[in-house]
Design a protein around this nucleic acid. Sequence first.
DNA 1: TAGGCCGGTTACCGCAACGTGACCGGTTAC
DNA 2: GTAACCGGTCACGTTGCGGTAACCGGCCTA
Lengths: 127, 127
Amino acid sequence: MEKTADAPTFDPACPMSAFPVQIGDKWTAMVVLCLEARPRRFSELRQLLGSVSAKVLTDTLRAMERDGLVSRSVFDENPPRVEYRLTALGRTLLQLVDAARSWARDNLDDLLSARRQHDDMPLPSPR
Amino acid sequence: MEKTADAPTFDPACPMSAFPVQIGDKWTAMVVLCLEARPRRFSELRQLLGSVSAKVLTDTLRAMERDGLVSRSVFDENPPRVEYRLTALGRTLLQLVDAARSWARDNLDDLLSARRQHDDMPLPSPR
DNA sequence: TAGGCCGGTTACCGCAACGTGACCGGTTAC
DNA sequence: GTAACCGGTCACGTTGCGGTAACCGGCCTA
């Protein structure tokens, strides 16, 4: 995916189409942040994320496990306990999430005000 | 969205839910890259992006214009010419896209091989 | 008169992501 | 007995993004 002088030209084999910046699905980035400090249990994650359903959180964690971003440990206690922790690979995502957050801190206000301004005058040529 | 000691706790007002790292829709990041070097015409973008339809590209560019990421200039020539260029705000996205690309360069292989390995043995306990 | 090019618009459609609600098996508490 | 807790699974419904196909109007060419 090096650009040749001028034109990027994305082919289907380009990594960007496999990973188009969007860091997995909707909740992946937040899960990464929740696991930054320490491993967490399933229900703990649900609480931290607030509005996520069990199914969607399960799907997200399964996908992250598949991709080697988190590891899942089952403790055969009672009540049963399951812990998720970031792998080394998962930790590498933290830089990226931080970069995104710092971009948002610096520029999101501009973006949102541009959007509001654009929405207030949606008539370019009344004709 | 500062974390208090330990728990991030995302509420709906959190910027992350308005901008969850994913840089707009599917093509936004690639459009940003295509416009890095210089402004481009509509059909030029279609060519560079390869497989995008006119409708989807139009939608993407309209959304980016709305958010103040690109500006659209119509030249009343013949044949009609329309140029899109990155705004200052749009240029700020370049750092983020670069960060994502460099993450991919460094870690995508690990992710993909973890995925392959996981897919080759999908039976945890056959009972 | 027909067709092509440019930069779209409109109508429609399929699919995957997202979400809801019910249920489950084992264990402990009431 | 039954109820709750944990960490899910299953069936189902909805939404919206991405994509296809047809068309448009103005200008130019054949």
